[in-house]
Simulated assay, not measured.
Amino acid sequence: MFGDFCHGLILLIFAGWMVSVEKEHMDKNSKNEIWAIFFGGRYVILMMSLFTLYTGFLYNEFFCKSVMVMTPYWMNTYDKETLEKFRYVELNPVFETNAPYIFGVDPVWAVQYIFLCSTLN
């Protein structure tokens, strides 16, 4: 879950709620151990959620799916028949490319990772 924007957002909402109701729950002794542990670490959970939001945005991960925020650096210079015929193709940066990806990881790397994982199985 670390590095996923949407999961970090859910965690931020939960931690924000715990911080907002802390005065009401501070005086109460709860017999629920799990709640006591979560409530005791509410500021740690809040910081974890903020860092998860940052890394999720950096890695372009939204619910474990890569999202193309900007146009990727690499351009496909092959036609459809070539891509269907050959399993592996090379994208050469000497040829035509787009502007560099400004922030985060280029989504083309996620596609390459999917192909790599499918060949290992």
Rank of each mutant, 00 (worst) to 15 (best):
E96K: 15
F2Q: 02
I102D: 10
P107H: 12
D79S: 03
E84K: 15
I13S: 14
L50R: 03
K23C: 06
V21E: 13
T55N: 01
N76K: 10
S49E: 05
F95W: 12
L58S: 11
T77Y: 07
Y54D: 01
E22V: 09
Y78R: 12
Y78G: 03
E61P: 00
E96N: 12
C64L: 12
E24D: 07
T82E: 15
L120M: 13
N60L: 03
D4I: 11
L91K: 07
S20F: 08
W17K: 08
A36I: 00
D106I: 04
M48T: 05
L120A: 09
L58C: 05
C64E: 06
Q112K: 07
F103M: 11
S66D: 14
S30G: 07
I114Q: 11
T71E: 15
H7Y: 14
A15C: 10
T71S: 14
C64N: 12
H7C: 12
I37E: 07
L83F: 04
T119G: 08
W35Q: 03
Q112N: 12
W35D: 02
L53P: 01
K85G: 01
G3N: 09
N98P: 13
Y43D: 00
K85H: 06
W74T: 01
D27I: 04
Y54E: 00
M70I: 01
D79N: 08
H7V: 10
L46Y: 09
Y43R: 14
G8V: 07
C6H: 01
H25E: 02
N121A: 11
P107F: 14
E61G: 01
W74N: 05
F62E: 06
F38H: 09
I102M: 12
Y73V: 00
V69D: 09
I13K: 09
G104W: 03
I102W: 11
C64D: 08
M48N: 05
G104S: 06
P93A: 12
N32Y: 09
W35P: 00
V105C: 07
V105R: 13
D27T: 08
G41E: 02
F2E: 01
V105M: 12
I114H: 07
V89R: 05
F63N: 14
K31C: 00
F62Q: 04
P100H: 10
F5R: 05
I13V: 15
G41C: 10
K31I: 00
L120H: 02
G16A: 05
H25N: 09
I37N: 07
I10C: 03
G40Q: 05
M75T: 12
A99R: 03
Y113M: 08
M70L: 04
D106G: 05
R87D: 03
N76T: 10
V105G: 08
F62N: 06
M75S: 10
M18V: 02
E81F: 07
